[in-house]
Amino acid sequence: RDEDEKEKIKEALKRGNEDKAKEIAKRANVSPEEYERLRKEAE
């Protein structure tokens, strides 16, 4: 379940949809550090 959320965040970031990614991260309680890591992976 947690991994699904992280995949959704990465997908949103790949599409350049940072607002959606942040919204998912907030809902999934993803830490800022984890969010940054996902953002780097998505580049």
Rank of each mutant, 00 (worst) to 15 (best):
I24F: 03
G16L: 03
E5Y: 15
V30Y: 05
L13M: 08
R37I: 08
L38Y: 05
D2L: 15
A25W: 00
L38C: 03
L13A: 01
E41G: 04
R37S: 07
E7R: 14
R1N: 14
G16S: 03
K6C: 05
I9N: 02
E18Q: 09
A12E: 11
K10Q: 02
E34N: 02
E36W: 04
E33K: 06
K10C: 08
I24A: 03
E5Q: 12
G16Q: 04
R37T: 07
P32T: 09
E43Q: 13
E23T: 07
L13W: 03
K8P: 02
S31W: 03
E34P: 00
R1L: 14
A12K: 02
N17V: 03
A25K: 02
E36H: 04
E7I: 13
V30D: 00
V30M: 12
K10L: 11
A21F: 01
R27D: 07
E33W: 06
N17Y: 10
I24P: 01
R37W: 06
E5L: 15
E33V: 07
D4K: 11
N17T: 04
N17E: 15
E34D: 08
D2W: 14
A25C: 04
R27Y: 07
K20R: 13
V30S: 01
R15V: 11
K8A: 15
K40Y: 12
A25L: 02
K20M: 15
N29G: 15
S31F: 03
K26W: 05
E18L: 11
E34H: 02
E11Y: 04
E7P: 04
S31D: 09
A28M: 09
N17W: 14
A25P: 01
D19E: 15
E7Q: 14
E23R: 08
Y35M: 07
R15S: 14
R15A: 15
E36K: 03
E23Q: 10
K6N: 09
I24T: 03
I9M: 03
E3W: 13
K20T: 10
E33D: 09
D2K: 11
D2I: 14
G16C: 04
E23D: 09
A21M: 01
E34S: 03
Y35E: 00
D4C: 12
K22R: 14
E5P: 15
N29R: 09
G16H: 06
D19P: 09
N29D: 08
E43L: 15
Y35Q: 01
E5H: 15
E3I: 10
R39C: 03
E11R: 09
E36I: 05
E18M: 10
K6V: 10
P32D: 13
E11Q: 11
K6P: 04
E7L: 14
A12W: 13
N29W: 03
A28T: 07
K10H: 02
E23N: 06
S31I: 03
E43D: 09
L38E: 00
D19R: 12
A25V: 03
I9E: 01
R37F: 06
E43A: 12
A28W: 07
E23G: 05
R1E: 13
R39V: 10
I24Y: 04
R39K: 13
R37Q: 09
K22S: 07
R39A: 08
N17P: 02
A25S: 04
E18A: 09
R37N: 08
D4T: 12
R15D: 11
G16W: 02
A28K: 05
G16N: 05
V30R: 01
A12M: 11
E5A: 15
S31H: 05
A21Q: 00
R37L: 08
D19H: 11
Y35K: 00
R1T: 15
K8S: 11
E11S: 09
P32F: 10
E7N: 12
E18Y: 14
L13K: 00
K8D: 07
E18C: 09
A28S: 09
A12D: 02
A28I: 13
K40R: 15
A42N: 05
D2M: 11
A21R: 00
R27A: 13
K22C: 05
E34F: 02
E3N: 13
G16E: 03
K20S: 09
L38F: 04
A12V: 02
A12F: 11
R1C: 10
E43W: 15
K40N: 10
A28Q: 07
E18S: 08
K14T: 06
A25Q: 06
K20H: 11
D4N: 12
N17S: 06
K26F: 08
R15G: 10
R27F: 05
E33C: 07
V30E: 01
R27W: 05
A21S: 02
E43S: 09
